[in-house]
């Protein structure tokens, strides 16, 4: 089996994987980082969004071997110890989650957006979150959270 090594949340990790192992499975099953969720497994829902070399990608649609030697950030890598990341804080303050299943992906997409656009409009947030689905349909507060979080990140 091929071996892969990558940096996840600042920590160097390595492992042996089957070629067909999805990156999300390597993160959840091998690395036991279960904050990254699998919602649909068909690239639609965005619950599995992580950052690979700083870019938001769907971890269910990338092979672990494709991430060899890359820098990965998952939802677990955002907080600084007990201090939540400003985007996480904004989701808490604005009640940006109901059941919470989509939240890790929402926050990782939101952080990627905020890095490009520090003051996104409501329309820009809604457009950027096109690939993140919330089955509780709590989009209104999610959008409010993302706008507040982006401002707080500057």
């Amino acid at each position: 089996m091929p071996s892969v090594s990558m940096t996840i949340n600042g920590k160097q990790v390595a492992g042996e994987v089957e070629e067909r192992t999805l990156l999300v499975d390597f993160i959840r099953e091998d690395q036991r980082l279960t904050g990254t969720h699998v919602g649909c497994d068909t690239s639609q829902c965005g619950a599995c969004v992580i950052h690979v070399n700083g870019e938001a990608v769907k971890a269910c649609t990338m092979l672990a071997v494709q991430a060899n030697n890359s820098e990965i950030t998952t939802i677990e890598g955002l907080a600084n110890g007990d201090d939540l990341h400003p985007m996480q804080e904004a989701f808490r303050d604005n009640h940006g989650l109901q059941c919470g299943f989509c939240t890790p992906g929402m926050i990782m997409s939101a952080v990627a957006l905020a890095k490009r656009n520090s003051a996104p409009s409501e329309a820009e947030v809604r457009h950027y979150l096109e690939g993140n689905l919330c089955r509780c349909t709590g989009y209104h507060n999610i959008v409010k959270s993302v706008m507040a979080g982006a401002r707080a990140m500057t």
């Binding site: 965005g46 938001a56 649609t61 990338m62 957006l113 950027y128």
Partner: peptide, 9 residues
């Protein structure tokens, strides 16, 4: 095309 995460790949 697709959504932001898809466009990144």
């Amino acid at each position: 095309i697709g959504d932001p995460a898809v466009r990144n790949r």
